[in-house]
Amino acid sequence: MKGKVVSYLAAKKYGFIQGDDGESYFLHFSELLDKKDEGKLVKGSMVHFDPTPTPKGLAAKAISLPLE
């Protein structure tokens, strides 16, 4: 699924993505496929991810940034 980063707290390594389906997904650095892309996780960045339901809500897994 595609989505847009709505927040990312680099110090805490987490944030949120708004998916194309309108839902909010929890984003964690550990799910970023290329850790070098962390600096690109800023508000408004477009990402691809696997939407995954968890006991705490919806989460983004296997997060990647589109090729530039």
Score class of each variant (00 low, 15 high):
29 F>P: 06
7 S>E: 08
49 F>A: 00
35 K>G: 07
26 F>K: 03
7 S>D: 06
29 F>E: 04
16 F>R: 06
16 F>T: 06
50 D>V: 15
25 Y>A: 00
50 D>C: 14
54 T>C: 08
49 F>T: 00
33 L>C: 10
23 E>G: 07
57 G>H: 03
9 L>S: 15
8 Y>K: 02
38 E>L: 07
17 I>M: 03
29 F>Y: 14
60 A>R: 00
2 K>Y: 12
44 G>R: 03
33 L>G: 04
21 D>E: 03
23 E>T: 07
19 G>Y: 02
53 P>N: 13
37 D>L: 09
33 L>K: 12
30 S>D: 10
32 L>E: 00
20 D>K: 06
13 K>S: 05
12 K>E: 07
60 A>Y: 01
56 K>P: 04
30 S>V: 08
11 A>M: 10
12 K>Y: 10
36 K>V: 07
38 E>V: 10
11 A>Y: 11
6 V>N: 06
52 T>S: 13
41 L>Y: 02
11 A>R: 12
12 K>L: 11
52 T>I: 13
35 K>A: 10
14 Y>P: 01
41 L>T: 02
31 E>I: 02
34 D>Y: 08
56 K>C: 11
5 V>A: 00
20 D>P: 06
31 E>Q: 11
48 H>D: 06
49 F>M: 01
33 L>V: 13
39 G>I: 14
52 T>H: 14
2 K>V: 11
2 K>N: 09
43 K>P: 14
31 E>F: 10
35 K>P: 15
47 V>E: 01
14 Y>I: 06
58 L>R: 09
62 A>K: 15
20 D>R: 06
57 G>S: 03
48 H>F: 14
31 E>W: 06
11 A>T: 12
9 L>D: 15
30 S>E: 09
53 P>D: 11
21 D>W: 03
65 L>Q: 05
8 Y>H: 01
26 F>I: 06
58 L>Y: 09
48 H>G: 07
31 E>D: 10
12 K>T: 10
5 V>T: 03
45 S>I: 15
30 S>T: 11
15 G>V: 02
25 Y>Q: 00
26 F>Y: 09
19 G>T: 04
42 V>A: 09
47 V>G: 01
28 H>M: 07
27 L>H: 01
35 K>E: 09
15 G>F: 02
19 G>R: 00
29 F>H: 07
21 D>N: 08
50 D>R: 15
14 Y>C: 07
34 D>M: 06
27 L>V: 05
53 P>R: 14
44 G>Q: 04
46 M>A: 12
32 L>C: 02
55 P>L: 09
13 K>E: 03
10 A>P: 14
53 P>Y: 13
12 K>V: 08
7 S>P: 00
8 Y>S: 02
4 K>C: 11
20 D>C: 12
32 L>N: 01
66 P>S: 15
54 T>F: 05
51 P>F: 08
52 T>E: 12
28 H>S: 12
49 F>N: 00
48 H>V: 14
15 G>R: 00
40 K>L: 09
58 L>V: 05
46 M>I: 15
35 K>D: 06
24 S>D: 06
62 A>F: 10
9 L>R: 12
67 L>E: 13
65 L>V: 15
27 L>F: 15
24 S>H: 11
18 Q>K: 13
36 K>A: 13
23 E>P: 03
63 I>N: 01
52 T>W: 15
46 M>S: 11
63 I>E: 02
35 K>L: 07
30 S>I: 08
24 S>T: 15
6 V>W: 08
67 L>S: 13
14 Y>V: 05
31 E>P: 01
29 F>V: 12
21 D>Q: 03
4 K>W: 15
9 L>I: 15
28 H>G: 06
32 L>T: 02
34 D>V: 08
5 V>P: 02
56 K>V: 08
63 I>Y: 02
7 S>F: 15
15 G>L: 02
36 K>R: 14
29 F>Q: 07
67 L>I: 12
46 M>P: 11
3 G>V: 02
49 F>P: 00
59 A>C: 11
42 V>M: 10
39 G>D: 11
25 Y>C: 02
16 F>E: 05
31 E>T: 04
29 F>I: 10
17 I>Q: 00
45 S>C: 14
27 L>M: 12
6 V>M: 12
68 E>N: 13
68 E>W: 12
49 F>V: 01
13 K>T: 03
41 L>R: 00
25 Y>R: 00
22 G>S: 05
6 V>T: 12
14 Y>D: 02
15 G>S: 01
22 G>H: 05
66 P>Y: 15
21 D>A: 03
38 E>F: 05
65 L>N: 03
1 M>S: 06
1 M>A: 07
18 Q>D: 09
17 I>C: 02
37 D>N: 08
49 F>L: 01
17 I>R: 00
58 L>F: 09
8 Y>C: 03
26 F>M: 05
40 K>C: 08
10 A>E: 09
33 L>N: 08
18 Q>N: 08
1 M>D: 03
26 F>H: 04
44 G>Y: 05
4 K>H: 13
9 L>Y: 15
1 M>E: 04
20 D>V: 10
54 T>P: 02
23 E>Q: 15
45 S>Q: 15
54 T>Y: 06
4 K>D: 03
30 S>H: 09
2 K>W: 12
64 S>Q: 09
67 L>D: 13
42 V>Q: 11
3 G>L: 01
25 Y>E: 00
58 L>A: 06
49 F>Y: 05
9 L>T: 13
60 A>G: 04
18 Q>F: 11
13 K>W: 04
30 S>F: 09
34 D>Q: 08
15 G>K: 00
25 Y>V: 02
27 L>S: 02
23 E>C: 13
64 S>F: 14
14 Y>G: 03
26 F>D: 02
68 E>L: 11
63 I>T: 03
5 V>K: 02
65 L>S: 05
47 V>M: 03
62 A>L: 09
31 E>L: 04
62 A>Q: 11
67 L>C: 11
45 S>R: 15
52 T>A: 14
7 S>N: 12
23 E>A: 11
11 A>F: 10
25 Y>L: 01
13 K>M: 05
59 A>H: 10
5 V>L: 07
48 H>E: 12
1 M>C: 08
68 E>Q: 14
30 S>K: 11
48 H>N: 11
52 T>V: 14
54 T>M: 07
45 S>N: 10
30 S>N: 13
62 A>V: 06
57 G>P: 03
64 S>Y: 15
28 H>E: 06
11 A>E: 12
34 D>K: 06
24 S>A: 09
39 G>S: 14
51 P>E: 02
14 Y>N: 03
47 V>S: 01
13 K>P: 01
66 P>L: 15
56 K>H: 12
16 F>S: 04
35 K>C: 07
17 I>V: 07
36 K>N: 14
36 K>I: 07
65 L>I: 13
44 G>I: 02
31 E>V: 04
26 F>G: 01
43 K>H: 10
14 Y>A: 04
29 F>S: 07
11 A>V: 11
61 K>S: 10
42 V>E: 09
63 I>K: 00
45 S>L: 14
46 M>W: 12
7 S>G: 07
21 D>T: 04
65 L>D: 02
37 D>K: 06
60 A>S: 03
64 S>C: 10
66 P>D: 15
12 K>G: 05
53 P>L: 15
56 K>G: 08
15 G>T: 02
43 K>D: 05
52 T>C: 13
39 G>A: 14
25 Y>H: 01
66 P>T: 14
53 P>I: 14
32 L>I: 05
68 E>P: 12
48 H>C: 14
51 P>G: 09
44 G>W: 05
6 V>F: 07
36 K>W: 08
4 K>E: 08
38 E>M: 06
7 S>H: 11
55 P>G: 10
56 K>D: 07
9 L>H: 14
15 G>D: 00
67 L>A: 12
46 M>D: 08
25 Y>M: 00
3 G>E: 01
63 I>F: 01
63 I>S: 00
45 S>D: 03
30 S>G: 07
54 T>A: 07
15 G>H: 02
3 G>W: 01
55 P>D: 10
60 A>M: 00
2 K>M: 11
41 L>A: 02
3 G>S: 02
68 E>K: 09
22 G>L: 05
10 A>L: 08
2 K>R: 13
37 D>P: 02
39 G>R: 14
27 L>A: 05
26 F>T: 04
40 K>N: 07
46 M>V: 15
46 M>E: 12
44 G>P: 02
18 Q>W: 10
15 G>E: 00
59 A>R: 15
15 G>P: 00
48 H>S: 12
17 I>H: 01
20 D>N: 09
40 K>V: 05
43 K>L: 08
54 T>R: 06
15 G>W: 03
38 E>N: 04
2 K>D: 06
36 K>C: 11
65 L>H: 04
21 D>C: 04
34 D>S: 08
5 V>C: 03
50 D>I: 15
57 G>C: 04
6 V>K: 13
18 Q>V: 13
54 T>E: 05
37 D>T: 07
61 K>A: 09
9 L>K: 12
8 Y>N: 02
47 V>L: 06
23 E>V: 10
5 V>N: 01
7 S>Q: 11
12 K>W: 09
27 L>Y: 09
39 G>H: 14
57 G>V: 03
59 A>Q: 13
23 E>H: 14
55 P>I: 10
32 L>S: 02
54 T>N: 07
41 L>P: 02
10 A>F: 14
24 S>Q: 14
22 G>F: 05
27 L>N: 00
10 A>W: 10
43 K>N: 09
22 G>I: 02
38 E>W: 07
40 K>E: 05
16 F>W: 13
67 L>M: 12
23 E>S: 10
59 A>G: 05
10 A>S: 12
64 S>K: 11
36 K>P: 04
6 V>Y: 08
13 K>V: 03
35 K>V: 08
47 V>F: 02
29 F>R: 09
34 D>I: 07
